[in-house]
Write a protein that binds this DNA or RNA. Structure first.
Length: 497
RNA sequence: GGCUCGAUGGUCAAGCGGCUAAGACGUCGCCCUUUCACGGCGAAAUCUCGGGUUCGAUUCCCGAUCGAGCUACCA
């Protein structure tokens, strides 16, 4: 590819960054970075009613968190292309200018049909088993008659929208970067469509074309759900005499349970980047997982850094079929990353202990090393997200369970149990605080094994029970060494009384 | 309903006319081990179905089936 690549991610500020949006952003970013092109962010906020306060900020924050940066955007304007919010562009009259041009050329016209009329038309079409389509309201009229009708509607106080005059029968086709050749006839568009709404705002399908052209976007990589918008956009490019960018429509990410497109309204699937962020997923892991959805590299590895993705990117390797979102694999990917980035993750893990109320912030700050050891042996290697550490570390490190009657009967009240616990209590007390190491404790228990001729669970469980109140858990000598002599002896004493 | 697109194990997927059809997640088993987790080893499991084309189809073509997307003054 020799031309300069300019791609964009164009979110609507209607809420948090969704997994599907994130994927679009990530692949566009990859596309730009791989070919040393430029990545632009544009805010498509023409639907005033759906914009939510903070939506734009949240989108951008989460993008940054993922490690996706941009060369131009609302916060980073290039004067040649700014502004980057469609509402601001609309105020500048950017869209009006081209709407007027189309109006002047007769390629678009003012339409005064009311919502009620349109609704009734569609219902009638549905009843007649016809595809819903817009019926041209000025059929058979000459220019003067049209003018007269419009003047009359205007006088009646009706608000006009501007509709694009769609050709009767024209094939719109393009070579899609992921799907190959796609062809859609103008008959399937559903009739003349609105390019300017009654409130004066351009519609998405129109504004996108104007902006992509003006911003010199060369490639548009977006979701499959935009395929049917493409012919509409193509006809605007044609009407204005512009060259369309190359399009690529990526297969969608669908819900594992239903096989349907992930919908922002589903509350049972975690599908916002924000949610994973709060659970303690690593941005690298999210990027890694998403980068492998609907796209695959050449080799056999599964764990990659952003840099590696950037180097490997190849727009010919997109999958054509939809991909189900597999939360288990995401968890595995995150686990891989957590282990690779343990130093960086440790403060987050400690913060989780504070959050869970197990320790105070002050303790967290003062005992970072000690807490790190606890976390390490509590089982970081097995967790999928940082938020999972608190339940793992609570017992026995910060609280003790009550010993159950069954455990007591099975391990402590037996003859062997009594022997083991009293011998261990004595031997442990004989160790100084400095000698209270995992190594020495292991040696001590091995000695007990020899002396008492008891081994396996009958040996270990009683000791585990009187010190930690558990019959299973991480390596016992390590627990005791980390928690220390005082803690151990105190537990033994309280338990044996 | 119409249009567009898609179809390899439960999931993500490699494959691009000839292979014992990669790999990963998950599942199961074994090993390690006082237990849990981690780790190691191994196993089960896939080309939707018909027709063609071809010496030969998972791969190319057609049809069926199934699935998804779209069908707004939302993006």
């Amino acid at each position: 590819m020799t031309e300069k690549i300019r791609v964009r991610y164009a979110p609507s500020p209607t809420g948090h960054l969704h997994i599907g949006n994130a994927r679009t952003a990530i692949f566009n970013w990859l596309f730009a970075r791989h070919y040393q092109g430029q990545f632009v962010i544009r805010i498509e906020d023409t639907d005033l009613a759906r914009n939510v306060a903070g939506g734009e900020k949240s989108q951008l924050d989460n993008l940054k968190w993922l490690g996706v940066d941009w060369d131009e955007g609302p916060d980073k304007p290039n004067p040649e292309y700014a502004p980057y919010r469609q509402t601001e562009r609309a105020k500048l009259g950017i869209y009006d200018r081209y709407i007027q041009e189309l109006l002047d050329q007769g390629k678009a016209y003012k339409s005064y049909k009311t919502e009620e009329t349109l609704k009734a038309e569609r219902e009638a079409q549905a009843a007649a088993h016809q595809a819903p389509h817009y019926v041209y309201e000025y059929a058979g009229m000459d220019a003067d008659q049209i003018k007269a009708a419009q003047v009359k509607d205007e006088a009646a106080g009706l608000k006009a929208v501007v509709r694009f005059r769609v050709s009767e029968d024209h094939d719109y086709q393009w070579q899609d970067i992921v799907k190959g050749k796609v062809k859609i006839n103008s008959k399937e568009i559903g009739g003349d469509w609105v390019i300017q709404k009654a409130d004066g705002m351009p519609t998405y399908n129109f504004a996108v074309v104007i902006d992509d052209h003006l911003m010199e976007i060369t490639h548009v990589l977006r979701g499959d759900d935009h395929v049917s918008n493409t012919p509409k956009q193509l006809m605007v490019y044609d009407a204005l005499g512009w060259q369309a960018p190359k399009f690529g429509h990526m297969a969608l990410i669908i819900k594992a349970e239903t096989g349907k497109k992930l919908s922002k309204r589903d509350e049972d699937t975690l599908q916002f980047i924000e949610q994973y962020r709060e659970l303690g997923y690593l941005p690298e892991a999210m990027f890694n997982f998403i980068g492998l959805l609907g796209w695959s590299p050449v080799g056999e590895n599964e764990i990659f850094t952003r840099e590696q993705f950037k180097d490997m990117f190849d727009e010919t390797r997109f999958t054509k079929a939809n991909a189900k979102f597999d939360a288990k694999k995401l968890a595995w990917v995150n686990n891989q990353w957590m282990r690779a980035e343990k130093d960086r993750v440790m403060p987050q893990l400690i913060a989780e202990l504070v959050k869970a109320g197990l320790i105070s912030q002050q303790e967290a700050d003062q005992q970072a090393d000690h807490l790190a050891k606890i976390i390490e042996i509590a089982g970081v290697d097995g967790i999928k997200a940082t938020s999972e550490i608190a339940p793992l570390a609570t017992y026995p490190f910060f609280k003790l369970h009550d010993i159950s009657d069954e455990d007591k009967a099975a391990w402590l009240d037996t003859e062997a149990g009594k022997q083991v616990t009293s011998a261990f209590a004595k031997a442990a007390a004989a160790l100084t605080a400095d000698d209270f190491t995992a190594e020495n404790l292991m040696k001590l228990i091995r000695q007990l094994q020899t002396d008492l001729a008891i081994k396996g669970r009958p040996l270990w469980n009683p000791i585990r029970l009187i010190t930690t109140h558990e019959v299973q858990g991480p390596n016992l000598p390590e627990i005791l060494a980390v928690m220390g002599r005082d803690w151990t002896l105190k537990n033994i004493q309280e338990t044996l009384v």
